[in-house]
């Protein structure tokens, strides 16, 4: 509250004077994230290409409503839940352990769990990959054509989204494989577009 009030006063004084907000705004700008995000991935959102940055400190775990049942927590007792944890999704900061190493160890200990690296999306949200891709097939394809094509890719249909013609969710493993599969299919030219079935951080208001 206090910090915000200071920031507001600085901004207000800027508008009142009508000139040079510079110092006020510059000094109150937030600091860059403490961990530099250097590894990026591309994905396709319809016609648009987007970038996400791998967060090396965080891992996502899905379908673990109780913390004491968490495979990540069993593997790393000092792991702490991070902002964005909600419902059946837990975002963990492992504390000194890199996400890559953490995911590897957790998968070895509990191979049936659903885990993903965590990404920052260029806005302020985290994203993760619980598995699955969303594919926009050409509208003139029949259901049997879609089934056959999906099988030819070694994939299976999870469900059809009733938000337009021939938009399907296909099953993949969680993690980076979902992103890579979506990109491969998107670039294949066989379909209109393909994207990962992202988990995206949101809040109630």
């Amino acid at each position: 509250m206090f910090l915000k009030s200071i920031g507001l006063l600085l901004l207000l004084s800027t508008f009142v004077s009508g000139v040079h907000a510079d110092d006020a705004l510059s000094k109150s700008k937030g600091k860059k994230a403490s961990t530099p995000l250097t590894v990026s991935y591309r994905w396709y959102d319809g016609d648009s290409e987007h970038t996400v940055w791998l967060n090396p400190d965080l891992v996502a775990e899905f379908s673990t409503p109780k913390v004491d049942k968490s495979a990540v927590k069993r593997a790393y007792p000092n792991a702490v839940p991070e902002r964005g944890s909600r419902g059946l999704t837990r975002i963990w900061r492992l504390g000194g352990i890199g996400a890559s190493e953490g995911l590897q160890k957790t998968r070895m200990m509990s191979p049936d769990g659903m885990y993903s690296p965590v990404f920052n999306d260029g806005g302020t949200r985290k994203r993760a990959l619980p598995g699955g891709i969303i594919v926009y097939f050409k509208p003139d394809w029949t259901a049997s054509q879609i089934s056959a094509w999906t099988a030819s890719q070694g994939l299976s249909i999870m469900n059809k989204l009733e938000i337009g013609l021939n938009i399907y969710v296909l099953k993949t493993a969680p993690g980076l494989v979902a992103l890579e599969t979506a990109n491969r299919i998107h670039k294949s030219g066989d379909v209109i577009s393909a994207q990962p079935n992202w988990w995206v951080e949101v809040s109630t208001r």
């Binding site: 937030g30 959102d45 319809g46 016609d47 648009s48 902002r83 999306d121 806005g123 302020t124 949200r125 969303i134 989204l161 938000i163 938009i167 577009s193 994207q195 992202w198 995206v200 951080e201 949101v202 809040s203 109630t204 208001r205």
Partner: peptide
């Protein structure tokens, strides 16, 4: 609900 508040950031909606 929606993207996190109090961030000042720009959070786009997905095409889907």
């Amino acid at each position: 609900w929606g993207a996190n508040d109090d961030t000042g950031g720009y959070n786009a909606s997905d095409a889907t």
